[in-house]
């Protein structure tokens, strides 16, 4: 028997639900300020995102258009100049425009792979860890199988079957990468499940969904981000490799495709560094930025409870 509500009881201010996630997000947002590596990574991402957004303004030339010199000849294999900051390809396309527009496909590939990996990995990890038993056994067996596939050959075979579409590359990368995050998240859930406060939620009648998403998930969210950031890097590298090896979609504009074109047209032997060095650097930058960020979040991940 709780006392009959009295008038004049100190009215507690209303507090919304779902608040628990906010401090986590706030801490995650504040993290790059503390970790210089993560800060560098984030800055790189922000810059590339700006470039991707403003690609049409930064490079108004169509990256696939075949350009001609004033003399009316195909502007092939030109060196860097005021008109073509990085020169042109053997087919007379503007390398600078390709580089700028390639940012879009790189980020699209990276982000979509990251989102799929984080979502699938998190959900599978949560469900397997929390329910355990047969569900867990089946899910983890599938994860083992996915983990045992050789990376690049699998992507090439899959894109061979489904078509060399960028979305298929993303799909292939996601299929290969979710098990890593699922495994780590699962083991984390296994220990969280034993915490007294999770048991407390059960005693007070919380549903499985509530326990999973309100009490357990906020603790592993940063971990999902770590794996998402790692997936960005992997997806971009993979896409570049597939394109470079010539299994990609020849009509796409991407850094990997640029490298492949440069390679097959022997830009290297011609010393046309402006063609292949910039996309190479861009790939390295984006990938490294992803790892920097994931490293930073790993540190936020185990928040040592402040105070006592």
């Amino acid at each position: 028997m709780v006392d009959a509500p009295e008038t004049g009881v100190i009215a507690a201010p209303r507090r919304g639900r779902g608040q628990s996630i906010l401090p986590v997000l706030r801490r995650m947002a504040a993290m790059p300020l503390k970790d210089p590596f993560a800060f560098a990574g984030l800055t790189i991402y922000v810059l590339f995102a700006l470039v991707a957004l403003l690609a049409d303004q930064l490079a108004p030339v169509d990256p696939l258009e075949i350009l001609f010199t004033k003399a009316g000849k195909v502007a092939a294999n030109l060196g860097p100049s005021g008109e073509f900051p990085l020169g042109t390809t053997n087919l007379g396309r503007d390398i600078y425009a390709q580089l700028v527009h390639g940012t879009r496909s790189a980020l699209a590939v990276g982000l979509s792979a990251a989102i799929i990996v984080a979502t699938v990995g998190t959900v599978v990890g949560l469900v397997a860890g929390y329910f355990g038993g047969t569900t867990d056994a089946v899910l983890m067996r599938i994860a083992d199988m996915a983990l045992s596939l050789p990376f690049l050959p699998f992507v090439i075979v899959l894109t061979g079957f489904l078509g060399a579409d960028t979305s298929n590359i993303v799909l292939a990368v996601a299929l290969l990468l979710w098990p890593n995050s699922a495994r780590v998240i699962r083991s984390q859930v296994l220990s969280l499940r034993e915490r007294a406060y999770v048991e407390a939620a059960r005693v007070t009648g919380a549903s499985h969904a509530r326990i999973l998403f309100v009490h357990i998930a906020p603790n592993i969210l940063p971990l999902s981000f770590v794996y998402a950031a790692i997936a960005i890097g992997w997806a971009i590298i993979t896409e570049a490799s597939v394109n470079f090896l010539g299994f990609g979609d020849p009509t796409s504009v991407s850094w990997g495709m640029m490298l492949q074109d440069a390679f097959t047209s022997q830009a290297l032997s011609r010393g046309q560094y402006a063609w292949f060095v910039p996309p190479g650097i861009c790939i390295i930058l984006v990938v490294v930025a992803g790892f920097f960020i994931s490293r930073g979040y790993e540190e936020v991940f185990m928040p040592r409870l402040r105070g006592r």
């Binding site: 507090r15 608040q19 628990s20 406060y197 939620a201 007070t204 919380a206 509530r210 009490h215």
Partner: peptide, 20 residues
């Protein structure tokens, strides 16, 4: 360990009420 470290005291004590 019995209280969710991410919950304010208010939310922790409100938990049974929400669930009921």
């Amino acid at each position: 360990d019995a209280l969710n470290p991410r919950f304010t005291i208010y939310r922790a004590v409100a938990e049974p009420l929400v669930n009921a």
